[in-house]
């Protein structure tokens, strides 16, 4: 059964790119437009991995990570954060919140696949 990956990003273009790329790599992808949306969707489905943007309306990436880590059912899933390079400081914050790894924008599709493959084993 294909693993389910959620991409949380307010940028439709990024969501689309992540979706396409990972679907092509054989994963099932579900999209969320911000942190709130992501949490709401997580309530009704189980995901194997979360890829989240940092800067999103309503609920940002850091808060989302913290909340996901507090949900027993999925607290151990890998969480990858997407940052821009100017957000180096966010990386520490994200790690503390519970992120597994991070990808810096801009990234190429192959990179994304590599990261996902690595963390999902």
């Amino acid at each position: 059964m294909a693993k389910v990956i959620m991409t949380a990003d307010d940028a439709a273009s990024v969501r689309q790119m992540v979706s396409f790329t990972l679907q092509e790599a054989g994963y099932e992808v579900t999209e969320a437009v911000d942190g709130q949306d992501a949490l709401k969707k997580i309530n009704s489905l189980t995901i194997d991995m979360l890829i989240t943007d940092m800067n999103m309306p309503n609920m940002g990436g850091i808060e989302l990570i913290r909340k996901v880590r507090a949900i027993p059912r999925i607290k151990f899933i890998p969480i990858i954060m997407l940052t821009t390079e100017s957000q180096a400081a966010k990386k520490q914050e994200g790690k503390k919140a519970g992120a597994t790894g991070w990808i810096v924008k801009p990234f190429r599709p192959e990179q994304l696949v590599a990261v996902v493959k690595k963390v999902l084993g």
Binding site: D10, A11, S13, V14, M17, N55, M56, P57, T84, K105, P106, F107
Partner: peptide, 14 residues
């Protein structure tokens, strides 16, 4: 801020 940040961030991606 977020809007301009996204324009920037995604712009560099695509």
């Amino acid at each position: 801020f977020r809007a301009i940040h996204t324009i920037k961030g995604s712009g560099s991606m695509f």
